[in-house]
């Protein structure tokens, strides 16, 4: 999965092809990086500047006024902490539950194993967009709407994660488990302390993928929360646009930068692990 890292065959290119590929490169870079640049530029402007010349490419100076205003108007740090807490809890819970389940499905012989595996896989077909209404009414009846539990528990098990852990465990030799049993290690000890560390590449890919997905998620927190205390950052940034009279785009774009920067940094630092999970096939 080094897709973004290394290139493929590029033997013997003529000058004309070289030129074409340079032009393609430039156009692609403008189309995909231009919007980020425009977001950043707008966030450095002031409202009068934008009203006077909305499409003028440069800010008069590097002004951080928009960021100050956003940080004052919205408790960004608290929403950020909420979001990170939620996404981390979901990712850890998924790993903690996928390990024993994956172990049973990959390594143990028991009646009903195939049925259990099919059951896990079939839940891949049921997205949150199908379950949210009944889950909302269920959590409402349990008094859990507007709590972290409503944001975290519904994603406690990832069918994809369980599947990926099972696949990774299939290639771990049985001898390792037998030797550990001989040494008197219990099943949970084997699962979490011996097999867990061996699956590090898979688990870190899973963690990153799940973390980024839930950090970004808008749909579920929108449906499950109305309360400031548990609101997440994407919701708060989307609200920036809906508040007040007239859209103050410099504020919205400043919020956008604050929302995207952490994910882009994670992406830059851990591209390979993220790609492992994204390109995984069931």
């Amino acid at each position: 999965m080094t897709a973004l890292r290394s290139g493929g065959a590029a033997a013997g290119r003529s000058g004309a092809r070289r030129l074409i590929s340079d032009v393609v490169l430039l156009v692609v870079a403008v189309v995909w990086l231009g919007p980020y640049a425009w977001m950043t530029i707008t966030s450095l402007k002031t409202l009068p500047e934008i009203t006077r010349a909305p499409a003028y490419p440069l800010p008069q100076a590097i002004q951080l006024g928009a960021y100050r205003e956003v940080l004052q108007a919205v408790p960004v740090m608290r929403y950020f902490a909420n979001t990170v807490l939620m996404a981390t809890a979901i990712a850890l819970l998924q790993i903690a539950l996928a390990l024993p389940a994956g172990y049973a499905l990959a390594k143990l012989r028991f009646v009903g194993r195939n049925a259990a595996f099919v059951l896990v896989l079939s839940c891949l077909l049921i997205p949150a967009q199908v379950t949210f209404v009944p889950v909302f009414t269920m959590l409402g009846a349990a008094g859990l709407v507007n709590t972290f539990a409503a944001l975290i528990l519904p994603f406690g098990v990832s069918a994809l994660g369980t599947f990926l852990v099972r696949q990774a465990l299939l290639s771990v030799p049985d001898e390792i488990i037998e030797a550990a049993r001989m040494d008197g290690a219990g099943e949970l000890r084997i699962i979490y302390l011996i097999l867990g560390p061996m699956l590090r590449p898979t688990l870190s890919a899973l963690f990153l993928f799940s973390f980024v997905f839930h950090y970004n998620d808008y749909f579920w927190p929108l449906v499950m929360t109305t309360d400031d205390q548990v609101r997440t950052l994407p919701l708060a940034i989307a609200l920036l646009r809906e508040q007040g009279t007239g859209v103050r785009w410099h504020l919205v774009m400043a919020g956008n930068v604050l929302l995207s920067l952490p994910v882009l940094l994670v992406f830059a630092a851990a591209q390979r692990q993220l790609l492992r999970a994204v390109t995984a096939r069931v």
Binding site: L33, M39, N216, P234, L259, L264, F267, L274
Partner: peptide, 19 residues
Amino acid sequence: VRGAVFSAYVVSWVAVALL
């Protein structure tokens, strides 16, 4: 450039939509 194209997939839908 490959990373730039893929980064749009990694960023939140909210950020992309607002932008």
